[in-house]
């Protein structure tokens, strides 16, 4: 029997990702790492988080070096929110890292100031809001731009440090894990080591399917010091299959398709 998908159903579909990321819990500086494995596109997680922040009226800074804000806006329209209006309202702010780098190279300016500009932007937003959540989309592009692994790692630590000054924020690093013996992989692992939650999105190894978009694995390395998990030696990750829709994501248990 075909089930008609109502608006409320779609609403729940995008909420499922944010509940997996434990955004509703008041964790002090919730650090989340999204790893794209095997060339998979994990930008849907960013979209779900943006949707959550708009609905909760929770201030968010998007530092983007991979996708444009117009992309997120257009996806958002289908998910029942208007990103540009939220930007105008001041709930969401945006730092186009890619554009700033391109302008620098075309105007023969130095790129060293860029990372400082990002940190300044966070501090500026913190002056107006109690909580400032942060998403860094495509952080691995910094390595392509010849920033060293050490510099990027230090920069991420500084973002977390500055974010911690506000009240229970979350910080999401969205990175592309190309191959095991590459700097991108090292960076993804370094960030995962700092993270409360690690989300891995991976394409289907057997090809493309219209029923399933890919594999989604969620690990909670930050939970291992919680009381309920204190006696667990090795916490098992949660594994799902996910299916993307125009208006959200649906998670499926393996074997149920």
């Amino acid at each position: 029997m075909k089930v008609k998908l109502t608006t409320s159903f779609y609403k729940r579909m995008s909420d499922i990702i944010t509940s997996c990321l434990q955004l509703q819990k008041n964790i002090s500086t919730n650090r989340i790492v999204v790893k794209e494995i095997n060339g998979c596109d994990g930008s849907f997680i960013v979209n779900c988080v943006i949707s959550y922040c708009i609905k909760q009226n929770s201030p968010l800074l998007i530092v983007s070096s991979h996708n444009s804000i117009t992309h997120y806006h257009n996806v958002g329209l289908r998910m029942n929110h208007n990103l540009f209006k939220s930007c105008e309202a001041g709930v969401i702010d945006y730092f186009d890292f890619g554009d700033a780098t391109l302008t620098n190279i075309m105007e023969y300016a130095e790129s060293d100031q860029l990372l400082i500009d990002v940190l300044k932007k966070i501090e500026e937003m913190q002056r107006n809001h109690d909580t400032v959540n942060i998403i860094f989309d495509g952080i691995t592009h910094l390595l392509d731009l010849q920033y060293t692994l050490q510099e990027v790692n230090k920069f991420c630590s500084e973002i977390i440090e500055i974010a911690a000054k506000s009240k229970n924020p979350f910080v999401i690093f969205h990175c592309n894990d190309v191959m095991e013996d590459d700097a991108n992989h090292c960076l993804a692992n370094l960030l995962s080591h700092k993270a409360q939650t690690v989300v891995e999105v991976e394409n289907l190894s057997s090809g493309l399917s219209s029923d399933v978009s890919g594999h989604l694995t969620i690990k909670y390395p930050g939970n291992k010091f919680n009381e309920e998990h204190i006696h667990t030696v090795d916490m098992k990750p949660k594994k799902y299959l996910y299916k993307l829709f125009d208006r959200g994501v649906k998670l499926l248990a393996p074997g149920t398709v």
Binding site: G39, D41, T70, V75, M79, G207, L208, L244, D246, G248
Partner: peptide, 17 residues
Amino acid sequence: TKLTALYTLVPFVPPSL
């Protein structure tokens, strides 16, 4: 090798690979 979804969440699934 690669198909990206631009301005949408759902990437195109080709009829055959």
